[in-house]
Design a protein around this nucleic acid. Sequence first.
DNA 1: TCTGGGGTCCTAGGACCC
DNA 2: TCTGGGGTCCTAGGACCC
Length: 420
Amino acid sequence: MKKVFALVDCNNFYASCEQVFAPRLRGRPIVVLSNNDGCIVARSKQARALGIGMGVPAFEAEDILKKHHVEVLSSNYALYADMSGRVMETLSTLTPRLEIYSIDEAFLDLTGMTEDRQDYGHTIRDRVRKWTGLEVSVGIGRSKTLAKVANKLAKRSDKADGVLDLTDSPWLDRALEQIAVEEVWGIGHAGAKALQGRGITTARALRDADIAWIRKRFGVNGVRTVYELRQMDCYPIDDNPPAKQGVTVSRSFGQAVEQLEPLCQAVAAFVTRAAEKLREGRQAAQHMTIFVMTNRFSRVGRYFNSETIHFPRATGDTGELLGRAMECVRRLFRQGCRFKRAGVILQGLVDENKVQGLLFDPVDRARSGRLMRAIDGINNRPDLSIRWAAQGLEQPSWQSRCCRRSKRYTTCWSELLEVS
DNA sequence: TCTGGGGTCCTAGGACCC
DNA sequence: TCTGGGGTCCTAGGACCC
């Protein structure tokens, strides 16, 4: 049977989450900044209309933000993650096969559906709006790539009213002509340049491109993208995502760090968080990479270094990871460097119940497992938390900037929305 | 002065094996 | 002077996604 895919995507997701809980922000130009208040990562419709770019450093946009009294917010991932969960839960009531593709997007398998697809798209929109307060757009097509195309056009056209079905549509050629080649899912900056050099500037031209040349220049993924534009689905719905291959935690510092002590504390905080994420996925890691770096945009005094530890037995024990991580930081530290960022990468992840044991293991693994469960249990309670001494006790000097963050309305009892 | 963070997959090349 | 063929595994780097 020929497949049908829908892509449901939240409009201006981070900005919209903020507007749901702050009515005074609705209808206004607002932007949300990345971690450390660095770049603009989300814009409301009104901010977009002012010509404020995506991914632009906040300091570069300062003039335009001030001039138009744009509301500027730090990112609030606790809020966005919770709102994302609500959207996905809502969608799961509308389809048996749902692939959560990103924080604000999901693919739905509509193959074999007898209902009118356009109507169904509106049902999705109405229910998500009613249950979460968020607006979504729905694009429908014979492949994921075409569902993406349809979704883009659904957002762009007022007439579509947020839903566009390109399945067997007589307008498909016209639709593909309206999508620039760099907007096609899977075509990045480098690929777009090469295609444009060959005169391929629209999705339609890409669909009709010579497949042998595509194979040579872009490999198998390029071929898949072209086939998908030709209505042959190459990427199935994956509603049972495979286990993670790696866990990364890294942050830019609010202020440069020049001493060993705060650098150790920062890395300790990142390792602690990474280990928590690891255990949330019931996994253990075989390798750990610690990296430290100075400002990557600075011309002078640049330094990047990293070190990788291989564990003889995969571990998810925060204490064990921390001990080795602190040794790394001491070796990586350089006097006189202004560190701006550091992080940890855990790789070689395995199911925590299928870890290859050691014949002579110096660590009591059962005891370590009980300790981690106890710590995680305590930290999952809203009123309690315990931390590792390596993270330090004082307010950290390296903490990322986020002075304009809204409240965690949906995940923190002390920050509930107040109505007067 | 100020410039995010977390992922996945593919490919080429080297090391090593018989 | 001549110097095979086929395979696996690992890693680094690039490209892409949101």
